[in-house]
Design a protein around this nucleic acid. Structure first.
Lengths: 248, 248
DNA sequence: AAAGCCCGTTGATCCAGATTGATGCGCTCA
DNA sequence: TGAGCGCATCAATCTGGATCAACGGGCTTT
């Protein structure tokens, strides 16, 4: 399932990662070379696979290359809360650069390919190449900003708004990451997972999605979703993309 | 209300800030000197004062020296959500080091003294002194970890647990910051504010605090609070301090 | 010392969302 | 080709927390 690969062969598997960092901070050619030649261990995992578990000691950071992932925590009673969703190109656990023990879980939402990069190598590139370090720091700051918005989302918005907001964010981040049209895409997660992300139950997610469909702001068949009335959805969710800081 | 002061006079007003960073990363004497001689503009503000407003362009980062503060966001309908509370020694808006425009508000919870430090100076100290940069980065990562826990708190815990968890976190952070006993302290915020932080209404906060009192896990008179049964409170809140990463 | 106000306290009622359970559809795999 | 299963869908009932309303006590203001 896991295999060592020679990163000097083409095309460099870390290019999506470089592209993302380069959106955050303008990088020089040497920065690009340094990033692309980071050692990386590829792994393909099935949907639902746990990539990092809470309490685990982490020596490699996990970069998502294909598919979708999420991070989640649980209460002692077993209530599960997804705290973020991730797109290809996202670093899933940058916090492990400075804290070796995981304080939450990382899970594949769909079948996915990830690249494991030793934390030590990321640390030294961040230290030796200030621009790269700054890009990584920026990435963690955007993460934090999204968490704040999620606190607001689950704390103060009603069910329909929460869902609308989540859909808007997902669409906006897809677009920012250059993954295609923000109006028509596949929503990779199950309604159960959407509920875990919004603090709702799956059945209520179902009801509210139906309500959004009946209102004519979205269309759905299976996992395929089309945002018919972006302004309407934006208004229902109270979505303002400022907190994404243009990238993410 | 605001006044320029010569930071070379004793005692250095930035010492609490240095102490906090030094807890995050072991700093050298030159790091200490560099931190203590950062230019800082002192300001004393009354309870409820807005230190930073959403949308505002920020050129100085705000360091809390005395009193308590919070950060908050609002929905378009006006629902207010407090996303974090802050103790003396905390940097209130480190994200402005890399993003010049505020995506949320910072407010004084009590009368407070703050020090404004130009973002440019913080940026250069972070760049020129890797240990300081790392400490600041660590601080933002701990912030993010706390936000994740808050998403879980408002998303998946019931009202009583949310409150118990909030009390545990506040006590633990007080202790970590060396602000005195974790069992007996004054809770600076109003029940309205506690509600805004936990996604509840003030009346329900009141009821649940009474329930905690009746259960004998806490005692309260006015703002003074005593945690009588720490293990009980911990259990009710499902509090596990790992996410605070020992400092904060 | 009186006036006013903010804040905490308590009760009564209402509603958004949870829970439970039943049905149906489209996968995958034998 | 059909069995089995995960997942979406939908309805009926229940409940935690919101909302609305009233009161009291300690604080500041004059």
């Amino acid at each position: 399932m896991a295999s060592k690969i020679d990163t000097t062969e083409e095309p460099p598997i870390l290019r999506p990662f470089f592209r993302k960092l380069n959106r955050l901070v303008q990088l020089a050619d040497e920065d690009e070379q340094a990033i692309l030649s980071l050692p990386a261990r590829l792994e393909e995992v099935p949907s639902g696979h746990d990539l990092v578990r809470e309490g685990q000691e982490v020596r490699e950071c996990c970069l998502l290359l294909q598919g979708y992932a999420c991070r989640h925590k649980s209460t002692e009673e077993g209530g599960r809360q997804i705290v973020s969703f991730h797109l290809p190109g996202d670093m899933l656990d940058l916090q492990h650069l400075l804290f070796p023990v995981a304080d939450h879980n990382v899970q594949a939402v769909t079948a996915a390919t990830v690249a494991w990069i030793p934390t030590a190598d990321l640390q030294s590139i961040a230290l030796e190449r200030p621009a790269v370090g700054q890009a990584l720091w920026r990435d963690t700051l955007i993460d934090a900003s999204i968490f704040r918005e999620w606190v607001l989302n689950v704390g103060r918005r009603d069910a329909r708004s929460r869902l609308a907001h989540m859909l808007c964010e997902f669409a906006a981040r897809r677009q920012a990451a250059g993954l295609g049209s923000p109006e028509h895409f596949t929503l990779p997660m199950s309604q159960e997972q959407i509920g875990d992300a919004t603090g709702l139950t799956a059945v209520h997610v179902n009801r509210m999605l139906r309500s959004l469909r009946e209102e004519g702001v979205i269309e759905q068949k299976n996992k395929a979703i089309r945002i018919v009335d972006w302004e309407g959805l934006r208004r229902i969710g109270g979505f303002d993309p400022t907190y994404l800081h243009a990238a993410a």
